[in-house]
Nucleic acid binder design. Sequence first.
DNA 1: CCGTGCATGTAATTCGTTACATGATTCC
DNA 2: GGAATCATGTAACGAATTACATGCACGG
Lengths: 198, 198
Amino acid sequence: MAKKPEKQPTPLEYAILGLAAGGPQTGYEICRLFEETPIGVYSSSPGSIYPAIRRLRAAGLIADAPHPDNPQGSKKVLRITGEGVATLRAWLGAPVSREDVERRMEELMLRFAFMSGNVSRAVIARFLTRLKTEIDAHVGRLASYAEAASLHMPPSGALALEAGIDSFRDRARWAARALDAINNAGEAEAPAKRKGAA
Amino acid sequence: MAKKPEKQPTPLEYAILGLAAGGPQTGYEICRLFEETPIGVYSSSPGSIYPAIRRLRAAGLIADAPHPDNPQGSKKVLRITGEGVATLRAWLGAPVSREDVERRMEELMLRFAFMSGNVSRAVIARFLTRLKTEIDAHVGRLASYAEAASLHMPPSGALALEAGIDSFRDRARWAARALDAINNAGEAEAPAKRKGAA
DNA sequence: CCGTGCATGTAATTCGTTACATGATTCC
DNA sequence: GGAATCATGTAACGAATTACATGCACGG
């Protein structure tokens, strides 16, 4: 358990790690998920997935499950390791930075997607709160840029910028709604500290 | 003007081409634009931009403007070539595919941003119409997937999927609004075929 | 016994990222 | 004349894309 340069996994590797955290998977199952479900906005295809699996295995974040009864070769079942869980949780719990919002929103949403079951409700709530704060700040910057520059832009340029601002605003509203949903779901499960409405 | 393998430029190269189509630029000006304006969601930094400029120059899509009075070495002014304009227009006018919407929405918005001044209003309108159609279809697919799978997903996974669907819906609404804006602006400029409301 | 789907990979290419290198202006 | 900014690049590296390679299992 030593001798790892401690390099941060790529988003694709985190995605695979997150899938493995939901239960043992084979490489082929992971390929299928990337092909057939909306998670696959993040690339797909065996050519990127199998090398990513190999890197995760080399880093000790996943391991081959003891071959159930397969002779070998075909059907290797992957299981996340303790260190893998720790790495995944560190990623999920990392602060939401301005750069994340400006240039890595997709990765933020991928992070969020894997949170339930892997981090506490408090961590999820903190993520959403911080996400909304950072998005609001970014929308402010974009709006003032648009105000200053829209007139000197070609119409389609201004409209494209508007689309970007809109989508950040929309995401901020979603974050607020998601926070409510998480809190309500949590209250229903937990011993119920307080009840407002049904 | 021969001997080019006719390979399709990358999004970054198209972005540079689009900027050059707006008027001569220096590499440094392009770097600054990527650093300081919201166009820079598409990477930035000299390390990717200068190599891209070199590739565009090698492909004959941009050329060095005859050095105005600079001795040499510093401050090379880039100008788009006729072939560059043709390549840019081909990109801007290309059909909107399902794959574009599913996995290259950012590139579609980049395309749209450069349309004014480079392609006709008809091409812009066709783009927006087709974009909305493809987005609506994709929303339909995502919604039926969500209906079938949301219950078996962890809550944050379902919420993340919802965020994705929302943002596509939002973008479809934007496309409709943008189409109106383009049409209205066009009518104001053109000899006015018909007038409905002020 | 033959094709289709299951299942796991490798190889070549290419682009982007990060970091570094270099020199010319301009401002104080 | 020294520092900041202008301005243009190169080098090392990593990772994704595309295409290809391989073999097993199973139904018809």
